[in-house]
Simulated assay, not measured.
Amino acid sequence: MISKKLITLGTLAATVLVLGACSSDNNSKDSSNSSSSKTEATSTSSSMDAVSSASVSDQPEVIEKALSADGNWIVATTKDMTFDKDVTVSGEFHNKGDDSKEIYRKFALYAQDSDMKVTARYTVTVPQLVVESENFNIVNGTIKGDVLVKANGFVLNGAKVDGNVIFEKDEYKTSATLDKEGAEVTGDITVQ
């Protein structure tokens, strides 16, 4: 019982930290490169509100669902994880879950302290991450596997792709930002 309470408390703390990072995102053209959300998110004044506006987990099945069209505008992992099948990022989401804001979606692969200093970076191993959400932003951490981009505005922000990035169309490649804050791709960057 006590360990469940500690886990819940830790998850709530991680959620608050991740959402804090979101509020510090620069909402410039580059950071607006993620997708939109049907989930309503509000400014949070409590941990319970924070949990309802983000998907934060250490479970692959939770993260996979959160990245789907039924998920949230922000998805965060709290540890390294491995998928044995391709994962698709789909749906239209808006920054902070507010439909009046720009289309934006964020996949946070890191933890941070109260000063918003990154304290850990996580690796998501997946055969292929298929990005169908517009303005999808992978922040910090590593995607180990290939990324197939089928939407405009894909962004790597301090993140690494240990694999190839393949764009379905040249327009998607042109609209992408693959080097924000030291981001890198170890493999080939191509158009199908």
Rank of each mutant, 00 (worst) to 15 (best):
138 I>E: 03
37 S>Y: 08
166 I>G: 00
94 H>G: 05
106 K>T: 07
137 N>R: 15
148 L>I: 03
113 D>F: 01
172 Y>H: 08
53 S>K: 09
92 E>R: 09
37 S>R: 09
50 A>T: 06
9 L>Y: 04
165 V>K: 01
3 S>W: 10
177 T>V: 14
129 L>H: 11
127 P>C: 04
188 D>M: 11
55 S>H: 02
177 T>S: 07
43 S>Y: 12
40 E>M: 03
47 S>K: 08
19 L>H: 11
65 K>E: 13
128 Q>G: 00
109 L>C: 04
18 V>F: 07
27 N>F: 02
189 I>H: 13
19 L>M: 11
8 T>L: 12
4 K>V: 09
137 N>M: 08
64 E>C: 08
174 T>S: 05
177 T>A: 05
124 V>Q: 01
169 K>M: 09
144 K>Q: 10
118 V>R: 05
6 L>F: 13
25 D>V: 10
78 T>A: 12
107 F>E: 10
168 E>K: 14
132 E>G: 08
190 T>Q: 06
112 Q>W: 02
41 A>F: 11
116 M>C: 05
123 T>I: 02
65 K>G: 08
140 N>R: 15
124 V>W: 03
30 D>M: 05
75 V>I: 10
59 Q>N: 15
96 K>A: 08
42 T>D: 12
106 K>N: 10
159 A>Y: 13
174 T>K: 08
129 L>K: 10
139 V>K: 15
6 L>H: 13
61 E>T: 12
96 K>F: 06
128 Q>S: 03
35 S>P: 09
97 G>T: 01
71 G>R: 06
13 A>L: 10
114 S>L: 14
151 A>L: 09
18 V>Q: 14
166 I>A: 00
101 K>E: 13
165 V>S: 01
79 K>H: 13
39 T>M: 04
19 L>C: 11
167 F>N: 02
99 D>V: 06
132 E>N: 14
156 L>H: 03
94 H>D: 13
87 V>W: 11
53 S>W: 02
135 N>W: 11
98 D>A: 02
34 S>M: 07
82 T>Y: 12
16 V>M: 08
188 D>T: 13
192 Q>S: 12
122 Y>S: 07
94 H>T: 15
139 V>P: 03
132 E>I: 02
161 V>Q: 06
2 I>Q: 14
67 L>D: 13
135 N>S: 13
157 N>C: 04
138 I>D: 04
162 D>T: 00
28 S>N: 15
85 K>G: 05
53 S>F: 04
169 K>D: 12
39 T>E: 03
129 L>D: 09
66 A>E: 06
100 S>C: 03
85 K>V: 05
69 A>D: 15
82 T>E: 11
153 G>M: 01
164 N>D: 14
186 T>K: 06
24 S>W: 07
119 T>R: 02
48 M>W: 11
185 V>L: 11
95 N>E: 07
